[in-house]
Design a protein around this nucleic acid. Structure first.
Lengths: 122, 122
DNA sequence: CGACTGTTATATCATCAATATAACAGTTAG
DNA sequence: CTAACTGTTATATTGATGATATAACAGTCG
């Protein structure tokens, strides 16, 4: 698993890590049942503190992307929760689309963007 | 202009204010050339500090949603910048859609969501 | 037993969100 | 002209959060 952290980004490190793991699951680079590197190994790999990795893993567990097995560590295990996921998307999408409307982005252009991102991942 | 701040939200007050103003512009509740309440009045209205409002207004000015006229205060004045807007959307959409894919949300369901949000606003 | 796993507890430091008080330079109505 | 308003800036404080560091604990496994 290749993780790239941008230390100059305004986005928190644990959020970057979290998002990249989600993308890796979405693109099947990480498959259901697969183990992630231990918090200490991952921390060494990307050059951050153990607790920063732990925070990302805990957040992913909380949101139903992985479970923790005493023997195998953090294991990808997705809880499908489409309704909850759609609700979260709606909340985040609303201000994003409002901004797009104001800036002259059409409905079809957004949909085209959606297609591009889906095509990149699936 | 009706502004509703959720003081229990994890979202920063100035971000809530910012987003609600953008939505108001998108839905034509606020029109180009219209003045916003002064930072002090808005602060009194919604029960927050003047600087919190100033931060929201400054951020909106920085991102090309309004300009400041010494005489008329903060005035809605949108800089159309579609390309930049699309790029920002792409960055924010990627992790959002990745999460959706993992949680079983289909491409068409996202597009349906986009339609709903656009219909609500336009 | 020893090396590993996640987890938890502290502590420190920097940054940021929010508040408060205060002042300054324009603008505008009385 | 004065007084009341506008945005803007400066400074300070408080609380929350991100990231780091060191340390320990309990479970697992070769």
């Amino acid at each position: 698993m290749l993780i790239e952290i941008d230390f100059n980004s305004e986005e928190a490190i644990y959020v970057q890590l979290r998002n990249q793991i989600i993308v890796a699951i979405a693109t099947s680079q990480l498959k259901n049942g697969e183990s992630l590197p231990s918090v200490r190994n991952m921390a060494d790999d990307i050059g951050v503190n153990m607790h920063t990795v732990n925070k990302a893993y805990s957040s992913l567990r909380q949101d139903g992307f992985l479970k923790v097995d005493r023997r195998r560590g953090a294991v990808v295990s997705v809880d499908i929760d489409k309704i909850n996921s759609l609700n979260k998307m709606r909340c985040l999408l609303k201000p994003l689309i409002a901004s797009g409307i104001v800036k002259g982005v059409s409905r079809d252009e957004v949909k085209k963007l959606i297609d591009e991102i889906y095509d990149d991942m699936e």
